[in-house]
Nucleic acid binder design. Sequence first.
DNA 1: TATTGTTATACTCTATAACTATA
DNA 2: TATAGTTATAGAGTATAACAATA
Lengths: 145, 145
Amino acid sequence: MPVPHRPSTETSEAESVLLDLVNAYEQAFDIAAASVELSAAQACVLGRLSEHRAMGGLATELGCDASNISQIVGRLDGMGLTYREASPQDGRVRVVARTAEGDAVAERFERSFGFARDALGRLTAEERGTLTALLRKALDEPANR
Amino acid sequence: MPVPHRPSTETSEAESVLLDLVNAYEQAFDIAAASVELSAAQACVLGRLSEHRAMGGLATELGCDASNISQIVGRLDGMGLTYREASPQDGRVRVVARTAEGDAVAERFERSFGFARDALGRLTAEERGTLTALLRKALDEPANR
DNA sequence: TATTGTTATACTCTATAACTATA
DNA sequence: TATAGTTATAGAGTATAACAATA
């Protein structure tokens, strides 16, 4: 579903803007993925392959089952964007990497997905700092990551 | 895919926190939906039925194809959470509404999905106002909605 | 004929279970 | 035996195309 839920109960202005932000982010991601003829999940995986990665590592990072990654990477392989090879250290592990074409598609995707860049570009440097601090506090994140 | 893409290119702190926010929002939504044994899409649709709605209106609101809504509402119907009836004004239109059980489930979902409430609750009233203004500017939204 | 909605179909995402290969 | 990964399978979300009913 492209658009998350907008609570039916009385919603504060802040909640409403937060929701708009999430919606806009998701929509921009989907459009950027479609612009390079990938699904959102495929773009998500391909985007993480700037470095080689083990299949299991990807599944852990993305919080999904390993069989899911097998399927998605299988499709990326079929498109010629990635390849897999056995790890020399451990024969059970298979390492995924992007082909040259995969790199090119990932780069086009990055250029197309300018949501955060565009949104933050509408703020001054000082405003960006304030926003970062407020969001960290709201998310209960430590100031240094 | 549960987690959107984290750009491989150099990412500002602000972009990173923005991504964390979107991820946290989505994850909280999925968990709240699962807590009432619904998929995210089902919770999304059910949540919009505090008022009756035509099938086509839902599709337009959610930016997806009408056939998609037919399927999702068909499942909600099957769970006894919604029902459909022909509009008296226009026999082509079918109006969807929640059953009493659907209302109860939607209410439980609302209580469970406290992401925005919790996040904003960590800020002072003044900070919430600042955040709202900054996000509106970043999203290029007018101050009054 | 145009509009609203459903159904048939196909593809992707996702998880669980069963399986293979390696450690 | 335990771990990494794949494959088989099934349910759900999604869109397109074909269809039925109504305007």
